[in-house]
Design a protein around this nucleic acid. Structure first.
Length: 854
RNA sequence: GCCCCAGUGGUGGAAUGGUAGACGCGCCUGACUCAAAAUCAGGUGCCGCAAGGCGUGGGGGUUCAAGUCCCUCCUGGGGCACCA
């Protein structure tokens, strides 16, 4: 009996060898094609979770496979180390954010190392290091000089729990994305990045990203939110002021019955301030949007200013101007014209304030619509619209825009939903904005030679708000221009800043002069395969795309699109458990019997099994990867994660699944110990037995199939093919030297194909079958195409589309042969008894379908 | 409300319009064992003793042939949402 495979020792042995030999360290090699494989960098929370394991296993499979395929593969890792959790830990536990972060990095790195990842650790980056953020401060200044970073007073989303500003993207359903607290609106001076300058470029660029998931492209497209329409000017009756409005439905202009402006529109005060009830109304609008209930009810309210505008096409028509809470100041012009007949919101509003509702579009099929009851928003032709009558909607839009342009009152314009990216955070643990406020000179960038502006270490959290702002000395400095006393900007940057360019820093991590050299960027960029969670579909991925364009315009050599290929993995889920008191319980504390009953392991009390959900700390349905790696080893963990679900779908973590993977690891080792004496790696024999030929066909088709599956991210299918080959090897009994040669070939190919998934075991067995060089450095096996084609084909025989028999014929047998063989089958004869054959369809080597009827 | 995506055995999931259920989990039978675990051999979509019939969320359609294409409905998941 062979000694059982020692997972722990063997896995460590190979990791040490890879490290010692610097197997995965790379430099720019022009003789090979490059491949940049990148997993989204983790936040150093201190412990890896199963989602990380899935992410890095996927990127590792791709990296190892690409390396075998002859690519010069860069697969780096780093830490997204700035951010709020470190400060929360500081406040809760009195540790310093920096110390907390670095100790977390140490712990997490140990865990990652135990996964056996093919990472070039010499390029490791932590974004909280001044050596890192120095370069983004330099970029910030470049952006400022290029007009891409600017400061303005603006309404911000204020998170009252975290005491900080949130980006629009960080507000989910009116609540802070982390705290869950209802967001308030406050006015503050804030730094912004002018992402809107690239709105159209970012939209157009999506079309070139053919290796991105369709879903992510659609989400970004919606986020950018391009709409074409007409902007025009209303004259206000009896006043000099004008009202600009934007509409995507200029065709419905003759159906308008009111105009409306946002509560914070400049005209709001001008027209309304002296009217009774105005102040109350404005107060009511501001309340709306802060409280959760108000957001959900979202009732439309309006205030009649008493002022009127003239219809641009017919000054005799006068429309009342309302102030309405559903108009947004920061979209379009902050003003609209209302056409209640063909817009739901306008209809709601008109109904409430008893404004007239006119029909100007009629369905073409003559269907009657009751426009007073509900608006009609479908296709049709114009009615009650004078010169536009009879036109299709699209034609009427063009005609209305043309007419307005001729009148000199407006023009066709494009609007975007995308807003500039607010990057200011009133927080300590972030990259300091490298700016100085001087009473004389205004805002002055910190000179390049004074970078980085480092965070001070001696801070305290005794009071709420920003520790930088109340630090006794840090913010006091002198103006670089006039030399007078001045103060530093105390805002730090949104942490999405760091992750917008980290993949460039990996290319040149030791460069002290610039963030990265142009030459290295030209060699490695773009990232060939980026892998991470779909939760970053808009935020991180859009910011990174913006960053490339901004850097490009500041003279850096970067491609417009940072990520040529993107793969978004599914979540890892697990059943949830509650004890008899209704409290959540960790899976590790629960024993589940085969009949599906669960008890608390410690005292045998009953446990209720709940829904299968995304792993989350709050529901305790989490598995600690460290336990798994310790118990089953890295190979088993990796194999299980890859084998069950397609990577883009959710993966349910099950005890049975990980055990199955672990059994397979041990089985492979046992099989090899049995086969060891039966391998022949001498010269290739001239002929093979039928059984050996079958095995060889399986070996070669596995190599071809696994390659295709990995290329398509169908890792579960690749694993299935590897198991099939191992089953074929298991069932093969070599009888002569040629058989032994075929068996040796099968083992070599099995190990090569499985190496990206289970690198430790395959490396070990590779050595045991007599190889002197690392499998990690071995080229992907060459497929003998001739072997893939079998010389016979199994053909299905159907009668009226139902399977009645299968026949085996030589490949390429002609239609007549196939038809005759099919007709000779008992099952076929029986099925056509009493019927006459009308037609026979023969698809060579595939199917014969006999169409028969009475 | 709008926009995506997905519904296949007990279960995770396979299937260029051409033999539905590969591969795994679970389960059943057997071998080994005093016994159990591990391992090994075999079986396992449903109904039926069998012959056979029925089967990819429901209904309709295209086709010699539909899990796959088209229409429609249902269910689940995700994204966006006073965006004029």
């Amino acid at each position: 009996m062979a000694e059982r495979y020692n997972i722990k020792e063997t896995e460590k042995k190979w990791r040490d060898i890879w490290t010692a030999q610097k197997t995965f360290e790379v430099t720019e090699v022009t003789s090979k094609p490059k491949s940049y494989v990148l997993a989204m960098l983790p936040y150093p929370s201190g412990r890896i979770h199963v989602g990380h394991v899935r992410n890095y296993t996927l990127s590792d499979v791709v990296a190892r496979y690409k390396k075998a395929k002859g690519f010069n593969v860069l697969n780096p890792m780093g830490w997204d180390a700035l951010g709020l959790p470190a400060e929360n830990a500081a406040m809760e536990r009195g540790v310093h954010p920096q110390d907390w972060t670095y100790s977390n990095i140490d712990q997490m790195k140990k865990q990652l190392l135990s996964m056996g990842l093919a990472i070039d650790w010499s390029r490791e980056v932590a974004t909280c290091a001044p050596e890192y953020y120095k370069h983004e401060q330099s970029m910030f200044i470049s952006f400022y000089k290029a007009g891409l970073a600017y400061r303005r007073e603006s309404m911000v989303n204020w998170d009252p729990i975290e005491n900080t500003v949130l980006a629009n993207e960080q507000v989910v359903d009116g609540k802070g994305w982390r705290s869950g607290a209802p967001v308030e609106r406050r006015k503050l001076n804030q730094w912004f990045f002018r992402i809107t300058k690239y709105a159209d470029e970012l939209l157009e660029g999506l079309k070139t990203l053919d290796r991105w998931p369709e879903k992510v492209r659609i989400m970004q497209e919606n986020w950018i939110g391009k709409s074409q329409g007409l902007q025009f000017t209303f004259d206000i009756v009896g006043r000099d002021e004008k009202l600009d409005v934007f509409t995507t439905r200029p065709d419905t202009l003759y159906g308008s019955s009111f105009a409306a402006i946002a509560p914070d529109h400049p005209l709001s005060k001008t027209l309304g301030a002296d009217k009774p009830g105005y102040a109350d109304f404005i107060k009511q609008c501001q309340a709306g949007g802060t409280s959760e209930a108000a957001i959900e009810q979202a009732e439309k309210i309006g205030f009649d200013t008493g002022a009127k505008v003239q219809h641009p096409f017919d000054p005799s028509i006068q429309l009342p101007i309302y102030i309405a809470n559903f108009i947004l100041m920061d979209y379009g012009t902050g003003g609209i014209f209302g056409c209640p007949g063909h817009d739901q919101r306008d209809h709601d509003f008109a109904t409430k304030y008893k404004l007239p509702i006119y029909q100007v579009v009629a369905p073409e099929n003559g269907e009657k619509v009751d426009i007073q009851k509900e608006p009609y928003v479908g296709p049709g032709k114009m009615v009650n619209s004078r010169e536009f009558d009879g036109m299709e909607i699209e034609a009427a839009k063009s005609a209305a825009i043309a007419k307005m342009e001729n009148l000199g009152r407006g023009k066709g314009v494009t609007q975007y939903r995308l807003r500039d990216w607010g990057v200011s955070r009133q927080r300590y643990w972030g990259c300091p904005v490298p700016m100085i406020h001087c009473e004389v000179c205004g805002i002055v960038p910190v000179p390049e030679k004074d970078l980085p502006v480092k965070l001070p270490y001696d801070i305290n959290y005794d009071a709420p708000g920003n520790p930088l702002d109340r630090h006794p000395t840090w913010k006091h400095t002198t103006c670089p221009q006039c030399g007078k006393a001045a103060t530093r900007e105390t805002d730090t940057c949104d942490t999405f800043f760091e992750s917008s360019w980290y993949f460039l820093r990996y290319l040149d991590p030791k460069n002290t002069e610039r963030g990265f050299s142009d030459a290295k960027s030209k060699y490695w960029m773009a990232v060939d395969q980026y892998i991470g969670g779909v939760e970053h579909a808009v935020l991180h991925l859009l910011y990174s795309r913006f960053f490339m364009r901004a850097l490009r315009d500041c003279g850096y050599a970067v491609p417009d699109e940072p990520f040529a290929g993107l793969f978004t993995q599914g979540m890892v889920t697990h059943a949830t458990y509650k004890d008899k008191d209704g409290k959540w319980v960790f899976p590790a504390e629960v024993t589940v019997t085969p009949d599906g009953k669960a008890t608390l392991t410690s005292d045998g009390s009953p446990i209720t099994i709940g829904r299968i959900e995304k792993m989350s700390k709050s529901k305790k349905n989490v598995i600690d990867p460290e336990d798994i790696l310790e118990t089953y080893g890295a190979d088993a963990a990796r194999l299980f994660i890859l084998s069950d679900s397609p990577p883009e779908r959710d993966l349910e973590w099950t005890e049975g699944g990980i055990e199955g993977a672990w059994r397979f690891i041990n089985k492979l080792d046992r099989m090899l110990q049995d086969d060891k004496g039966n391998l022949n790696n001498a010269a290739k024999p001239g002929s093979f037995s039928d059984a050996a030929s079958d095995l060889r066909r399986k070996s070669h088709s596995t190599i071809a199939g696994v390659a295709k599956d990995i290329d398509n991210f169908a890792m579960n299918k690749a694993v299935a093919k590897i198991r099939e080959l191992s089953n074929a090897i298991d069932g093969f009994n070599p009888k002569d030297d040629a058989d032994k040669w075929a068996l040796n070939e099968a083992w070599s190919m099995l190990l090569a194909a499985a190496n990206p998934m289970i690198p430790h075991l395959t490396e070990e067995l590779w050595e045991q079958i007599g190889n002197k060089t690392l499998l990690a450095n071995t080229a992907w096996p060459k497929v003998e195409e001739a072997l893939l084609a079998s010389d016979t084909a199994t053909i299905a025989v159907q009668v009226n589309g139902k399977l009645r028999a299968t026949i085996t014929l030589p490949k390429g047998a002609d239609q007549k042969t196939a038809e005759e063989a099919a007709m000779a089958e008992e099952g076929v004869k029986r099925a056509i008894t009493g019927l006459s054959v009308k037609k026979v369809i023969v698809v060579p080597d595939r199917i014969v379908n006999i169409v028969a009827a009475a």
